[in-house]
């Protein structure tokens, strides 16, 4: 029974955390992009405009949710939910801090630690494509359909690269559990350099590029290229249903940043000192600091790079990223083999 209560509390906290983070993310993105474009962005609601997202969210909830005439109603209504659910589920396996011990019981700061965590993450992110494909198709309108077909092709292509980029990480750390991967990065080189997986630089680069494509963000945001296809798959959605898509997009952005930190930047690892409570809080602070640094990278790229053409996107994914990651897997395999078994001629 106690397990159930702990799990329920963790789940509620995780969801509350995600929704709070989204409020901050949307505001941060608007402010940062505004500064990059020599504007101010939202400044009116709350201090520095931080309540702007809340105001926008309330507005969307109270707006009328229009249902166009030619939609396939059931799928049209299901699509926003199918977008949000995988986004929420991915976060369940992300460890946000070191395990804490209260009264002899150890509590991990992640909802659940699956021993197939990496595969679970990939599986859930592959479910996200359904929401977009179905939203576009069920809208019964041409621009959403074009957007959703683009997105399905794009996400399938880059999913492969993303999965391949993670293979060296798994080989290097010898586990597919996210908590295990973070723990494996706890050591140091020469006593002071943290042994983060960032040494697997090609993996990191491929993963980040695939991550931009998976979250459908600039420079791969052909899915919702405003100049060509209005809003893409969510053109026919309004009010709360649109808000669900929006929410899912930003939760995915945060998830992917958190996963980058877990896979390549040591998760919550960092120097810990002081009394017990500080030792609990510091790893969480490290985790969020690193994650928001990656989020900043996302926003920076969005403010900098122009959108790719569709054929460029496809040929880059299949003809560059996948061969590069395959070659890198072979190199990493040799390196890991030498590390474990020694040189073949020695």
């Amino acid at each position: 029974m106690e397990d159930f209560i702990v799990a329920a509390v963790k789940t509620v906290i995780a969801f509350a955390l995600l929704f709070t983070v989204v409020l901050i993310l949307v505001w941060a993105e608007r402010r940062i992009v505004a500064f990059m474009q020599n504007r101010l962005g939202p400044t009116r609601a709350g201090p520095l405009g931080i309540l702007q997202t809340l105001a926008d969210g309330l507005k969307l909830i109270f707006k009328e949710s229009m249902t166009p005439d030619r939609v396939e109603v059931w799928l049209y209504l299901a699509a926003p939910i199918m977008a949000l659910v995988p986004a929420l589920l991915i976060f369940l396996v992300v460890p946000i801090g070191a395990p804490i011990t209260i009264g002899g019981t150890e509590y991990t700061l992640q909802v659940t630690d699956l021993n197939v965590g990496v595969l679970y993450v990939l599986a859930m992110s592959s479910m996200a494509v359904y929401a977009i494909a179905l939203a576009g198709w069920s809208s019964g309108s041409k621009y959403p359909l074009i957007g959703s077909v683009r997105s399905a092709a794009q996400m399938i292509s880059y999913e492969a690269a993303m999965g391949l980029a993670l293979v060296p990480v798994i080989m290097f750390n010898g586990t597919t559990s996210l908590a295990g991967i973070v723990e494996a990065q706890g050591a140091t080189y020469f006593g002071f350099l943290p042994a983060w997986n960032i040494v697997l630089l090609p993996s990191f680069v491929v993963f980040v590029i695939a991550m931009f494509a998976e979250t459908n963000r600039a420079p791969f945001d052909l899915v919702e290229a405003e100049q060509e296809i209005v809003g893409g798959f969510h053109t026919e959605y309004s009010g709360f249903r649109f808000a669900l898509f929006f929410l899912a997009e930003y939760i995915n952005l945060f998830n992917m940043s958190a996963l980058t930190v877990v896979f390549f930047f040591g998760g919550w690892q960092g120097p810990v000192f002081g009394p017990t409570v500080v030792q609990w809080i510091l790893p969480v602070i490290y985790f969020f600091a690193k994650t928001f640094a990656i989020v900043f990278l996302f926003i920076w790229v969005r403010g900098t790079l122009p959108r790719l053409r569709y054929d460029q996107l496809m040929s880059f994914g299949w003809k560059r990223l996948i061969p590069v990651s395959l070659a890198w897997i072979i190199l990493a395999m040799i390196a890991v083999g030498i590390r474990r078994f020694g040189l073949p001629w020695a």
């Binding site: 990939l122 599986a123 592959s126 479910m127």
Partner: peptide
């Protein structure tokens, strides 16, 4: 279970739908 989702629900059905 995860492979089931990844391969069948994730890849095969997406291609079907496509």
């Amino acid at each position: 279970a995860v492979v089931q989702i990844l391969v069948y629900a994730g890849a095969v059905m997406t291609l079907f739908l496509f």
